[in-house]
Design a protein around this nucleic acid. Sequence first.
RNA 1: GCUGGGAUUCCCGAGUGGUCAAAGGGGCAGGACUUAAGAUCCUGUGCUUAGUGCUUCGCAGGUUCGAAUCCUGUUCCCAGCACCA
Length: 954
Amino acid sequence: MYDFISSEKKWQDKWNDLKVGEVNYDSSKPKFFLIWAYLTVSGFHHVGHMRGYSYADAICRYKRMNGYNVLLPAGGHATGNGTISKAYNVRSKDPQTIEYYKELGLNEKDLEKISTPFGFINFFKNIYIKDYKSYGFIGDWRRFVVTTDKEYNKFIEWQFKKLKQKDLLVQKPYFATACVECGPVAVDPSEMDLKKGGNAQKNEYTILKLKFEKDNQYVVVATLRPETIFGQTNIWLDYNVTYTKLKVGEEVWIASKEFAEKLKYQKENIEILDEIKGKDLVGKYVTPPIINREIIILPSEFCDPNIGTGIVTSVPSDAPIDWIGLFDLQRSKELTEKYGLDFEELKKIEPIAIINSKGFGKFPAIEICKKYNINSQKDIEKLEEAKKEVYKKGFHTGVMLENAGKYSNLKVEQAKEEIRNDLIKSNLADIFYDLSEEVVCRCGKQVVIKKIDNQWFIKYSDKELTNNTISHIKDMLLLPEQYKKNLPNILNWFDDRACARQGNWLGTKFPFDKTYTIEPISDSTLYPIFYLVSLYINQGIVKEEQLTENFFDFVYLGLGDSEIISKEISLDIKLLLQIRKDVEYWYPLDINLGGQDHLTVHFPVFLMNHVALLPKKYWPKGIIVNWWVINKSGKISKSKGGVRSIGQEAKTYSVDAIRLFYSNIASPFVNIDFPEEDLIKYKQRLEKIYYFIVDLENNFKLLEIKNLNNIDRWLESKFNQRLKNIIGSMDKIEFKEATDDIYFNIYNDLHWYLRRGGNNKTLLKEIIKKWTLSFGLFTPHIAEELNEVLGNQELVSTSVFPKVNDSKIDESLDTNEKNIENISSEIRTVLKMANIEKPKTIKIIVSKSWKYDFYKDLKSELEVTRNVGQIISTLMSKYLDYKSEIGKIVPKLLKQPSLLENITSQELDLKFFKEILLFLESEFSTKMEIYKAENFNDLKSETASPAKPGIIVE
RNA sequence: GCUGGGAUUCCCGAGUGGUCAAAGGGGCAGGACUUAAGAUCCUGUGCUUAGUGCUUCGCAGGUUCGAAUCCUGUUCCCAGCACCA
């Protein structure tokens, strides 16, 4: 048995000992610089990570074998509060956390180590490098960086100073999600910061001020549809809830207590004045802005004081729930009287048509309630669905009706914006942000939306920056291809981004206000260039205090005087100049490879920061986005558990098989599963190839040393064709195509060669050797192992990738082999049809001579016209003797023009069949006979054609 | 909602106007080898037929001498979406 595990260890040690991945400035070689996007330091690697890394390593190995000096560094992203909360969970002995780590092999001592944020980071940092090596990735791990390193902080400080100097840092108010206790938190599905509510959306409500009883006193309602203001007939609140009067500036607002509390985070000078009971409001009237007619306050059961202001405006024409609410009241005298309302008065309220939407009449809400058969405001689920449908249709296809005043005939999409802006401008409305569901911080306290007055932003909206970036990406390698189309849209859409926050976070202190910490996305945009300095930092040659603004200005931007700077920071001038040279040598980055989660955030900011801060010659040259490994429950991610240990997987399937699986199972740009059966198949495939080559090697002495015959030349030609394809695929980063050729097609070619009696020792040796080298890209361990079996001294990893010998490619040799397959297949079909298993003889009748000429003429005629009648009449005049046959043959051939390819002549076909006679006889274990149609009296002699010789089995 | 992508023969997955009943892999079936099993190798795998003919590439139309491939409509599915790495 081929021992995958010990072979892996053996070659990994060798690569490590020979420091294949450790690279330095070398002006004699072209450089290639690739990174994979930072790994978040939050636990173990899983098989999803290994997918991207495998692609990165395959590209790097290919480049290395083509003479490039290849730099592949790595680093860990630890800023933010991920590590803080992970370490906290360990420290506080959260049972789930402890169990998880124990399952993955950590002992008590390890747990102790990872119970502080920095302990956690250091522990995993070492594991990561071990993981890279254990999967056979060759990189320069000396340069490993963690974003919480103090030297890294200096780099980020420098970056932000540069951003400021370029006027790309701006301050303005911002509404952020924040825990009332611990400050800003991220609300996202990974729920890194949260206990609950990761899927919540930030909604922007328009607060309408409805005048109530006296000037400057308003009942306020929150709406997402300010354009429906013209259809208001009443407002809703809860009869049993006690509302609050609050002072907002000079005004008094009436709303729920919960709203008042939340508003405090978004507005200054909020004061709670008084309480007012819902039942005291019901039946009274308010005056909404713009429409200026009184509408009544009515009770309902669907007003949640936690949502919006707890009071809702009612537009029964377009909001299903409003219509049903009204309907419930209008049909029950009993109910209205209970609330002390005038039943007859209430019945007079009618919906007001305001919007014309495609597929709906005047009152969409009423129609949809009928459609969904909604009869009561208690049908909450149906109402929700109905609301969505009406809203969607209205938003996209709706047009405002005449009663909308100056907004008449505007599209809803447009009217919504204008109405909102006008209302706010004239102080008739306000903005309020709220979360769509309850969100709870990890600490247990509520998460709200909080206004931050002087929030710092990176100005990604900057026109010049955006345009420069968009025009730069035209020249970039961007994979998948569709991303190239998508990226300009993303860049245009990308708005200013809040870049620093207060609270308990790891990261670089914001240089212009040290109470802020730079947030995690913003500190991981320019970092590939830091690997060029981290090499010296990690060796202890360059110290934190030497990483001044002038230092970075010089090494990254070439600014300043090296002698002065060298003295200023007491750094050897030779070293300073060397670092500058390194930067000039390695930059720009050739490829940044990362998962699809980076599509709309990381990659855009990575690009824009490079474009903003570095000279054009240092702008990145490529981005490759790989998709994920998913399982039944969705994306494999650490935060959701369900992580597979990469070590266990490697033991079970072998590293080479896993890597081949990633490259061959599908394109890098689709999500894949990680199914055991497939992994096993790939492992078996590798074993098959291994034993095939080992057996061949053992039998080399049985083979002949001789000149090339036809089948030898075919193999040589075919192999060179495959190699050419492989190289083409690798240049286009098409792993699936490349691995299909390497692990399947060439294998099949060699089998065919042997079956056809190929036994040329010199040729086979040469081809097997080259083939083995090609394994070095995807399955490097087995490649080295086989290379050693073949007696080669040099490592595959440092060998030169085989070159194509174009002069050996001769496609006519393929035709020959193809014809052999075809005739074999035809014979088999005939045998099956005739129901003969063991034929005594097989006769092949080669078509009559004239047909060869005729086929050739027909083919060239086809290039002139596709008109059947015309073709026939042209050809008939030339082949007068065969008129009746031509009439039958031509229409058939027109349907199957492939039969006209590669027509030679009767003599050549006779020769061909004689040459393969022995092969066919052994394939069918019988006697073969070959005849000219002219000399063989049988029906088959008439039907035999150049593309299909007659076959008679007996 | 915004932006982008997709639907192919039992499955995965190639395929962008004729050479396509459609690569490759898997599964399944038959055969060879083997004491046997497994592995390996060969063959087959839409229906039909002495090598023919017919029907297929989400659904419905259209352009063309010719469409899996182009156009229109339609249904369904997927991905990313800002203090989240």
